[in-house]
Design a protein around this nucleic acid. Structure first.
Length: 205
DNA sequence: GCGTCGATGGCA
DNA sequence: GCCATCGACGCG
């Protein structure tokens, strides 16, 4: 697939594949900033530019659901990468995560915010609103991101300015709450909490 | 613009 | 009882 930029130069935009996802969640989370999430549903296509993610890096990470062990709910996380891990929380919200790393290494990336594209009028700032906006619910748990119902396109042009901050809503996770595992596009207004807080740094690459 | 709080259900 | 949340409400 190719499209033309405003300068009329062809730019290839490709679907992210298994090798992209079969890496540590930290790397995937950072590299997902600026990519395009695509959802095909009921004959329509919705797109959003991802501007906020969080890495959950395995069972040792007390903020990760995989730290509770392998259960029916977390089973997908322990499987192969490039699948959706969707769970239900607070009695009303679904959350969209992407499984990363090798099978058995239960890492995942939470997609927290995106900018709607193509004139789509939606609020995708915050993981609950994002999942709702894209029509992601429990039946989408385990969905294969190499298919055509839900997938991600590589960045179309230059890399955004990425900052790393502590994750949101994981105060219970002992010292893990301070790790810089949340990544944001510093220039986006669609990041869920406009305030970066004092901990924001450039991520190590 | 801010902080506080209730909703609401699956899960350990 | 606890959540990887959101939106409504009260304040002044």
């Amino acid at each position: 697939m190719a499209r033309r930029t405003s300068q009329n130069r062809p730019t290839s935009i490709s679907k992210l594949d298994v090798p992209f996802y079969a890496r540590p969640a930290v790397d995937v989370a950072r590299d997902l900033i600026g990519t395009i999430l695509v959802r095909r549903r009921r004959g329509r296509e919705f797109r959003g530019r991802i501007v906020e993610t969080e890495a959950y890096i395995g069972p040792q990470d007390l903020a990760s659901h995989s730290s509770k062990g392998r259960t029916k709910r977390t089973e997908v996380m322990f499987g192969p990468p490039a699948r959706a891990y969707v769970y239900f929380i607070y009695g009303m919200y679904e959350m969209l995560n992407i499984v990363t790393a090798e099978p058995g290494d239960a890492q995942a990336v939470l997609i927290r915010a995106a900018e709607p594209l193509d004139g789509w009028d939606a609020n995708l700032s915050g993981p609950g609103r994002l999942a709702r906006g894209f029509g992601i619910k429990l039946p989408e748990n385990g969905l294969d991101l190499t298919g055509d119902k839900l997938f991600i396109l590589d960045r179309s042009c230059s890399a955004p300015k990425v900052l790393a901050t502590p994750r949101i809503g994981v105060e219970y996770a002992k010292h893990w709450q301070h790790e810089l595992l949340r990544f944001i596009d510093a220039d986006s207004l669609a990041v869920s909490k406009p305030r970066l807080g004092p901990g924001a740094k450039s991520p190590r690459s």
